[in-house]
Structures are given as C-alpha cells and as structure tokens.
Amino acid sequence: MMNKIQLIGHKLIATVARLGQAAIFFYQILLTMPGVLIRPKLIIKQLYSTGVQTLVIILVAGTFVGMVLALQAYYVLVDFGAEDSISQMVVLSLMRELGPVITGLLFAGRAGSALTAEIGLMKSTEQLSGMEMMAIDPMQRVMAPRILAGFLAMPILTAIFIAVGVLGGYLVAVHGVGIYEGVYWSLAQTKVDFYTDLMNGMIKSIVFGLVIVWIAVFEGHDSVPTSEGLGQATTRTVVHGSLAVLGLDFLLTALMFGDI
C-alpha cells in the first residue's frame, strides 16, 4: 500500500520536474530569438516543413467538417423551421471551436510528430553535439526556427481550415439542401462578431501552435537516442500535444466566451 502511494508521489515529482525542464528549455530558446530573426532562411525552411506540408490534410479535413456540420445542422434545425440559421451554426462552430481544435489536433499529429522524430534523430546521430563542438548553438539554429514556424503556421492553417469549412458548408446548404444563397452569407455576416468570434479563434490557434511545437521540440531534444526511445518520444508528443490542445481549449473558451 505504502509502495503505491510512494509511486504516485514519485511520478508527481517527476512530472513537475519535467515541466520545469521544459520551461527552462523554452526560456533558453527565447534568449536566442534575436539571433534567429536575422536568419529568415531558417524560419522559411521550417515553415515549409510544418506549414505547407500540413496544408493538404487541413484542406481536406476542413471541407469535410464544414460539409458534415451543415448537414447535421440542417437535420436538427429543420424541425424548428429554423433551417435558415444553418450558416450561423456552421460558421460559429468552426470559428470558435472546431477550427482551432481540429487544426491543432491534426497539426500535433502530423507536424508535431515529424518535428520530434527529426530532432530525436539529429540527437542520436550526434548532429546536435557536432554543432555544439563547431561552436554553433543548436538552440538557435535548430530549435528556435522550428518554434517560430509553428507559432506562425498554426493561425494560417486555422484560417484556411475555417474558410474551407465555411465554403463546404455553403456547398451543402445552398446546393445540397436548398437554402437561399443570400440568406447563408448575410446571416453569417450579421451574426458573427469579428472580435469575439474570429479573433478569439485566431488567438486560440496561436496558443495551440506555440504549445504543440514547444512539446514537440522538447520531446525530441530530450529523447533517448535509441529507436525505441524515439518512438516513445514521438508518441508522447502526439498524446501530450493533443491533450494540451483540448485542455487549453476549455480554459480559453471559458475565458473568452464566458460572459456571453
């Protein structure tokens, strides 16, 4: 019995210690920022790996989510004779929640795991050590550009997801179910608030992006340099990243939409 309690305490302390390590890691990367910003080539290369290569899955997912949302909304609203409100439901759901969260989850899975694997591999083939011995700071050259890229890529991907979703919803609503085109767009315009809905959704995506890349880069940097260790680190990135997205989403939603 005592052993079990000891185990819980031990795990708790280990988790807190790890969080501390991650925080110090992030702080060290922040210190290198001035040096990174004058080397835009590195950031652009990372934007390609994290952003552009996730674009396809975001486009597909966004379209389908928007379409399904419109369909389901119609089936429910038609009972109240309120099917004209379909665009309101589609747009608000996408902007406030589904856009940032689904994009975040997909991002954690695709870009996050790739980041962890890449950095973990660099660690195990001693490339990071090699850079240090050449008097080049891997924090500045390898880690920081990736963090910046994630920070920039997520809001872009989220905006694209929402836009494509709205268009998908339009397809289903107007050409599938027969809502008037004018009604779809005008209701969307009047009922959606730029600051409370769109900007809040964007802020969420920026927060998610930062947290996901932070976890991904840290796990890669901290990974055990064996094939098994790498697999574990990648899994941790996806799991912890996804959970963080969902948890932060709740927190941010409560903060942002709490008094509506």
Binding site: T125, Q127, G130, M131
Partner: peptide, 9 residues
C-alpha cells in the same frame, strides 16, 4: 570527429 561523422543530413 564523431564516431558517426555527425554530418548535417
């Protein structure tokens, strides 16, 4: 000179 060369891949 690292054991694996440690070249940037």
């Amino acid at each position: 000179l690292f054991q694996s060369g440690a070249l940037l891949t």
